[in-house]
Simulated scan of single mutants.
Amino acid sequence: MSLTAVKNVVDLTLRSAVLRGLLAGLIAGLLAGGVAYVTGESLVDQAISIEEAGAAPHSHDSTVAGEDHKHGTEDSPLISRDGQRAGLFLATSLTGGAFGVLLAVVWFALTRKLVNGPKTQTILSLAVAGWTATAAVPWLLVPPNPPAVGATETIDYRTHLWVIAVLLGLTAVITWFMVCRWEESRPGSSILLKALPGLAAAAIVIVGWRILPESGTDYSGFPADLLWNFRLASAATQLTLWLALGIAFQFLIERRAMRN
């Protein structure tokens, strides 16, 4: 990057960064919605068919990257499937926009402390950290469930478990960052010191997994392949969201920096 481009990045205002983060998030949300639609909607339809056939007697909720399928009475859903499909793209776009703003604020705050101002190289690292905290760790500790899995009366309980899992993910990421800073300040560079940040973060996730209560979800009578395919679709959606967010935000920041 040229000296002019570096100066343009340094002079970037918080408002400008946030606007670019919002735009990047909306783009990423639409892409994630497309992945969720292609990989997950047919699985949702299959799960609903199982529920309607009486194979699983519980009302439920399901989530693929923020999409909620909530059923009302036994005969009719509160929201039609067409409405749910349209709501999927709205939900992923809003989620992407919110994460984009958050990413922009965190990036701006952190990189302002660097000697030469904001560094675009940190954007993808922050996106990976966001994915780890809000998607990867919760996916491991409280995996998402499709329709026909989980009773309605346990929704609040499972939501609380998910929030705890996100907090554990954030704690793991912050711990990794702090230990990295500490390791960089230490003389020498032994293999153990280099591995310490990852080990500390992994230890937090493992301890959280061990102490986090069971969700009490009954999976009996539900096809295992459908369950795991749904979870893989959810993971692919979240990965697309954060990867696209990081790439789009970095592109928009660098494009602004290279202007003139």
Rank of each mutant, 00 (worst) to 15 (best):
T159C: 00
H160A: 15
H160K: 10
H160I: 09
L161N: 12
L161F: 12
L161W: 15
W162Q: 14
W162A: 14
V163P: 00
V163S: 09
I164S: 11
A165E: 09
V166W: 08
V166E: 09
V166R: 12
L167M: 14
L168S: 10
L168E: 12
L168W: 00
G169Q: 04
G169L: 07
G169N: 08
G169I: 08
G169W: 06
L170D: 09
T171Y: 07
T171L: 15
T171A: 15
A172Q: 02
V173Q: 06
V173G: 13
W176A: 04
F177G: 02
F177L: 12
M178N: 12
V179N: 05
V179E: 06
R181Y: 04
R181S: 08
W182H: 09
W182T: 00
W182V: 01
E183F: 00
E183G: 09
R186N: 07
P187M: 07
S189L: 09
S189H: 13
S190F: 00
S190E: 08
S190N: 13
I191N: 10
I191Y: 03
L193T: 11
L193H: 11
K194H: 10
K194E: 11
K194P: 00
A195E: 05
A195L: 15
A195H: 04
L196F: 11
P197L: 01
P197S: 09
L199G: 03
A200V: 03
A201I: 02
A202K: 07
A202Q: 02
A203S: 14
V205G: 02
V205E: 01
I206D: 06
I206E: 04
V207E: 04
V207R: 07
W209T: 00
R210K: 13
R210N: 13
R210F: 09
I211N: 05
L212A: 08
P213D: 10
E214T: 09
S215M: 03
